[in-house]
């Protein structure tokens, strides 16, 4: 039988999916054990026990100086910045993207400008943001917005403009105004794509967040990683990286479920 016709069953899929994770964990354990056997003071690949102790310290022991549980305060600070940035970017994308995608006049006015803006490397603007908006929350949220909004906007405008012309004409014969076409015909049909687009932008959003926190912050997941980097504390950095990844995966999953719940007609097989 050809390889192309070989389809794993449910159990087989689960097993195959788990395999890379197991391999990675094993490789780490072996590497860590070998290095620690050579040099018990090695900091590069700490043992699981060492990481467990640091997780205990960061997540479940109050900080000696502030009395806060650092992992949770860091997570809260970072998620506040990330979600504020994504929310503002989504609103901007909805307004400008829809205007752009629905009205040819607005497209002529805005599309070249948005295309230009989306090419500005956001990280290059970071110093400007810190100088103009200060070192507080605003500049970090602004960086996420600047990084994510143009791409969301362009994607939304493209999706809106790609709707068949027949649908727009059809809506006109059903007495729709320009506003009603945007509200009842275009908006509901671009929403699933907006959610997918947001999912794809989670990675870049985290990148901008951590970059901003690394340079100047008083708390946050990125701030902590770059703080303990000075002490080569891989036993804190590794759990933090895993935690950030878990957060991102959970958000991705939540958005996927939201899309399926709200827009059942947009599922690939067309099944509701």
């Amino acid at each position: 039988m050809r390889l192309i016709n070989l389809t794993p069953g449910k159990g087989g899929r689960l097993l195959l999916g788990a395999l890379p994770f197991v391999v990675l964990a094993l490789a780490y354990l072996v590497g860590s054990a070998l290095r620690l056997a050579d040099n018990p003071g090695d900091k590069l690949l700490p043992s699981l026990g060492a990481m467990g102790r640091m997780i205990e310290v960061m997540a479940f022991t109050p900080d000696k100086r502030t009395g806060a549980y650092l992992l949770w305060t860091d997570t809260a600070a970072s998620l506040f910045r990330l979600w504020s940035g994504l929310a503002i970017a989504t609103v901007i994308a909805l307004v400008i993207g829809l205007l752009n995608g629905v009205l040819p006049v607005m497209r002529a006015l805005l599309a070249p400008f948005v295309a230009f803006l989306s090419m500005v490397p956001p990280l290059a603007l970071l110093p400007v943001l810190f100088i103009v908006l200060g070192l507080g929350e605003v500049s970090k949220i602004a960086l996420i917005v600047i990084g994510v909004a143009p791409i969301l906007t362009r994607d939304l405008a493209l999706t809106a403009a790609a709707l068949p012309r027949e649908q727009i004409v059809k809506a006109e014969t059903l007495s729709a105004s320009s506003w009603l076409i945007a509200w009842r015909v275009v908006l509901p049909q671009v929403m699933p794509r907006l959610i997918d687009s947001l999912r794809l932008q989670l990675g870049p959003a985290f990148l901008f967040l951590i970059a901003a926190e690394a340079i100047s912050a008083e708390g946050g997941l990125g701030y902590r990683i770059f703080l303990v980097r000075r002490y080569l504390s891989m036993d804190i950095i590794f759990p933090y990286v895993v935690w950030i990844t878990v957060l991102a995966v959970a958000m991705d999953l939540a958005l996927r479920l939201l899309r399926r719940r709200l827009y059942p007609w947009a599922e690939p097989e067309g099944r509701a």
Binding site: E166, V169, K170, E172, T173, P188, A266
Partner: peptide, 18 residues
């Protein structure tokens, strides 16, 4: 421009998928 006094049915894309 198109209006409600003239209805249309195309071969495709005549109904709203959502």
């Amino acid at each position: 421009e198109p209006g409600p006094d003239r209805g249309v049915v195309y071969q495709r894309y005549s109904v709203f998928p959502h």
